[in-house]
């Protein structure tokens, strides 16, 4: 499994339908990942669309040196941080609408996190700091290697290692005895 790189190569060779495979495989994962930063599914979706459209408009940008998933997550993270930086007005949402939003997030979680264990962990992860959340998400939910996660987070492998160690320690406290088996 090359996380869509071979499909994208076929797309670059002229097979337009190959791009659908890339979108099918990675779009929801990217939205879920970006949502972790922006905490807004719609904004996360827009960011993910923007990132994927870059693959179409700027076809030489991805050089196949990292996996396509890592590349997309790097772009997604950078756009998400830009979005947070430039978001001047915080939209306050009515409580009744917030219920729907929660539903949508949960819906997305169901799409991305098929595994029940992962969903339980994801619930506990929300109580961690942003960095810890990110590293847990990339390593456990997206099955990235430490190196790939480090590239996405723009940290060294050692930093990722330490962060993950501390995150797991905190998660054990949050999840209790059951957490030992989940992690």
């Amino acid at each position: 499994m090359d996380n869509g790189a071979s499909s994208y190569r076929r797309f670059l060779d002229g097979d337009e339908s190959a791009f659908d495979d890339v979108v099918n495989e990675l779009f929801h994962k990217l939205v879920f990942f970006v949502d972790g930063y922006v905490h807004d599914v719609h904004a996360a979706e827009d960011i993910a669309i923007d990132v994927f459209s870059d693959l179409i408009s700027n076809r030489r940008r991805y050089n196949f040196k990292v996996t396509l998933k890592t590349f997309l997550f790097m772009l997604g993270r950078s756009r998400a941080l830009d979005y947070i930086k430039h978001r001047k007005v915080i939209n306050f949402v009515e409580l009744s609408q917030a219920e729907n939003l929660t539903d949508e997030s949960e819906n997305l979680e169901e799409i991305v996190l098929v595994d029940e264990k992962k969903r339980i962990v994801n619930g506990a992860v929300s109580k961690l700091s942003a960095d810890m959340r990110e590293v847990i998400h990339l390593i456990y939910f997206e099955d990235m290697t430490y190196e790939q996660a480090a590239k996405v987070m723009k940290k060294s492998r050692k930093q990722v290692d330490n962060l993950l160690y501390r995150a797991k320690k905190e998660l054990r406290i949050i999840l209790g005895e059951d957490g030992e088996q989940l992690l």
Partner: peptide, 18 residues
């Protein structure tokens, strides 16, 4: 939340626009 087809169409539209 948009479905995948809509998102795909939006990606292509935005790509062409770019």
């Amino acid at each position: 939340m948009r479905n995948l087809e809509e998102c795909r169409a939006e990606i292509f539209r935005l790509g062409e626009e770019k």
